[in-house]
Design a binder for these strands. Structure first.
Length: 742
DNA sequence: CATACCGCATACTGG
DNA sequence: ATGCGGTATG
């Protein structure tokens, strides 16, 4: 009979069987920690008859939660029902939905994302009479956020920060919290802080959850911050059945308040804790692992450990010296296409990592021109796109009338003649009369303190909102559909009649699709449930293995993932490690980030750096990352411009890279190049001139990787094609490998 | 009240 | 390089 202990190594087995009391699992990269967590939970349910609803598992991302839930369902079937597997934020939102009234919030409270909270903060700064030039909102936002991470209330902050600047922050912090409460809203940090306050201040609520969650698991423990730690401590206070899993070498969120000490000091907090080390890596080749180990060994504040593997030695790591960022990306494209041919890999085997989101643009352009399919994770998140946020803001304002940020956002979207002048008078009226923004609008609609034009338009808007609230739609999808239709967002976009506007219409439609999908997965869900889900969702969560695309993302987003081939770009001093974090602690965190990036690779690893890189439009010349010096040289093979010349000099020859010259590829007018990829390209291969005139709306086209689709719009050399599978894409005529289907 | 344009800060990492 | 916010203009 199959057992949860099958196929586990001794250390993993120890961890799975240690179900009572505090347990710290130090799990190196790729050492099977998810396996340990899921098998331990299965062990609790199957062998120790613990009801699933008594088990809590907290993960770092929704994606990780989904994966764990999937694996648990596979192990437990119907026995998995009722278990809480969630991120900290999702768990807290759920707890606050139930009992947030104790803190003065209704069940319909809104969750503000960074953008929303910054808008509110700006309102607060203005109300406090602080000039935004002299007092940048971002500074206040970050100070307030850190205070919340540390569970420092406005009053506590006031006491500890008596200097003029600190006092100013305290004042804004207090006003900001009051504004949030008045708006019946919480920012991301508040989800944690308010949950802590709720549990800490209400014995019955705490007892309920302590009793319910008899076994608590925390994944990625090295990335928990103080407030998260305190929530866990409260939850496990009674029974102390807690397993935390983490790796101090992968702590990369110190800037967000994550405290490595949580993991380093777990043994002090729980002196009777069992400590189990998982040091066998099942993911990477020996060479990749050794490079990673060498780098991270340069950190001082770490638990000494060495990850080992029984895997093959593997290929050497390729270090590529690019002349500039464009050359860097072109090398990636060429290597992707080469390995596709020579090693029969698929696009989804590849991941390209970078330190900052800003670096993705060049990579994207080069991939687009080469026709190499890619997907970007995390740049502009779907639910943060302006048009999607507009639609969501309607839903929020409908559900939560106190939500002034959402209301202000949509009152004139689409344009309905309620502009800045009118709204500032309404806001003024609201604050002098102690009303919410919506109440002031209602007042204005029936009053005479505004001109007849604005009054009439506001009355129409208020009537529209009331209409929305009285919907009798049978399903969530119908409800959202009718609201979106009522707003007139879509016709306004269609009237713009541009490529971009069409994309936006697509996104609004996609939002309705998301509602439908959500409703299918959660049949009894309310509009509030959907919005909560949407607020807590990130781009990473929807990351599917697209068989036909290379994945592009930041190093931070890469945590927890793995790919057969990994490319780390921008390995230059001041980019990675980043210039803003060169103090010793910051440097150690950058080194851990480097470690995380390297250990994502299963078989092949590329480390790239460019001699010249443009920042803010100005060229910068950065030395190769200092992390190269910390790697075992015998595992690295150098290619590119700098590999034949000393690195410190001689970068004037921008175009003389050996690799570049091996490609006798044609060039376009702007100096970009078109690369051969084995199969002949239909367009852009030099012979086919591929001008935009060859295509028109309605044409049927075939793309090398996207398959067939219909041309929607032609605009200059850009082509919008609606592919049968994969949806709308923008392609560059002359570069994208497309041909007309007759 | 909407649109056009100009100047300026911005771009480190995220639930 | 680009997007946002402020201001001039219609």
């Amino acid at each position: 009979m199959a057992s949860v202990f099958d196929d586990l190594n001794p250390a993993q087995r120890d961890a799975v069987s240690a179900t009572q009391g505090p347990v710290l699992v130090l799990a190196g990269a790729g050492s099977g920690k998810t396996r340990v967590l899921t098998h331990r939970i299965a062990h609790l349910v199957l062998d120790q008859d613990v009801p699933a609803e008594r088990i809590l598992a907290i993960t770092f991302t929704n994606k990780a939660a989904g994966e764990m839930r999937g694996r648990l369902e596979a192990l437990l079937g119907a026995h998995a029902a009722g278990m809480w597997v969630a991120t900290f934020h999702a768990m807290c939102a759920r707890i606050l939905r139930r009992d947030g009234e104790r803190l003065g919030f209704t069940r319909s409270f809104t969750i503000y994302d960074a953008d929303d909270s910054k808008r509110l903060l700006k309102q607060v700064l203005q109300a406090e009479g602080l000039d935004q030039q002299r007092f940048p909102p971002a500074l206040f936002a970050s100070r307030i956020s850190s205070a919340k991470d540390e569970l420092e209330s406005p009053s506590a902050f006031e006491e500890t920060h008596t200097d003029p600047a600190g006092a100013k922050v305290a004042r804004v912090y207090r006003a900001y919290q009051r504004a949030l409460l008045e708006a019946n809203a919480m920012d991301f940090d508040d989800l944690l802080v308010h949950t802590y306050r709720l549990l800490e201040g209400h014995e019955d609520v705490l007892a309920h959850y302590q009793d319910r969650f008899e076994y608590v698991h925390v994944d990625e423990y090295q990335d928990t911050n103080h407030v998260q730690y305190r929530i866990v401590a409260l939850l496990v206070g009674a029974h102390r059945n807690v397993m935390v899993v983490g790796d101090d070498d992968q702590s990369i969120y110190g800037w967000r308040g994550a405290d490595v000490r949580n993991i380093l000091e777990f043994e002090e907090d729980f002196p009777d804790a069992r400590v189990i080390r998982l040091e066998q890596n099942y993911r990477s080749t020996q060479k990749i692992l050794e490079v990673a180990n060498y780098v991270v060994a340069h950190n001082e504040g770490r638990k000494p450990k060495t990850l080992w593997t029984a895997n093959a030695e593997g290929e050497s790591i390729t270090r590529y010296h690019a002349s500039d960022e464009r050359d860097e990306s072109q090398f990636v494209v060429a290597e992707v296409e080469r390995l596709l041919r020579e090693e029969h890999r698929s696009y989804s085997d590849f991941a390209v990592f970078y330190r900052t989101n800003a670096q993705s643009r060049v990579v994207e352009n080069v991939f687009l021109r080469a026709g190499t399919p890619y997907q970007i994770v995390g740049s502009v998140k779907f639910f943060q796109r302006a048009e999607v946020k507009d639609a969501l803001a309607y839903l929020r304002a409908i559900v939560n009338p106190a939500d002034g940020v959402s209301l202000a956002r949509i009152v004139n979207v689409p344009r309905r003649g309620i502009g800045k002048t009118t709204m500032s008078r309404v806001a003024e009226y609201a604050s002098t009369h102690g009303l919410t923004l919506y109440e002031a609008l209602e007042d204005a609609a029936g009053g005479d303190w505004l001109g007849t034009g604005p009054t009439r338009r506001i009355a129409a808007f208020v009537a529209l909102m009331e209409d929305f609230r009285e919907t009798d739609a049978a399903t969530l999808k119908e409800q959202v559909e009718s609201i979106v239709a009522g707003t007139g967002i879509v016709p306004a976009l269609e009237a713009e009649d541009t490529l971009e506007a069409r994309g936006r219409v697509e996104n609004v439609m996609e939002l309705i699709g998301q509602v439908e999908e959500f409703e299918r997965d959660h049949p009894d869900a309310t509009l509030e449930d959907f919005m909560e889900w949407a607020s807590l969702r990130t781009d990473l969560d929807s990351l599917e293995m697209d068989e036909r695309a290379v994945t592009l993302m930041t190093l931070h987003n890469a945590k927890g993932l793995e790919y057969p081939v990994v490319v780390v770009t921008g390995m230059e001093d001041s980019i990675f490690p980043h210039a803003n974090v060169i103090d010793p602690a910051g440097l150690e965190e950058e080194r851990r980030l480097c470690y995380v990036g390297i250990t994502r690779a299963r078989e092949r690893l590329y480390l790239l750096h460019a001699a010249k890189r443009s920042l803010f439009g100005r060229p910068q010349f950065n030395a190769p990352s200092r992390f190269f010096k910390e790697m075992p040289e015998e595992h690295l093979v150098s290619k590119g411009t700098g590999s034949t010349a000393p690195l410190s000099r001689g970068y004037s020859r921008e175009r003389s890279g050996a690799w570049e010259e091996s490609f006798a590829a044609p060039r376009d007018e702007e100096g970009g190049r078109v690369f051969g990829s084995g199969e002949p390209r239909v367009a852009g291969s030099g012979s086919a001139d591929g001008s935009a005139e060859d295509f028109g709306p309605g044409d049927r086209v075939r793309h090398k990787s996207f398959g067939e689709g219909d041309v929607v719009v032609v605009e200059g050399d850009k082509l919008a094609v609606d592919f049968d599978e994969g949806g709308l894409k923008t392609l560059l005529v002359g570069y994208a490998p497309i041909e007309k289907v007759v």
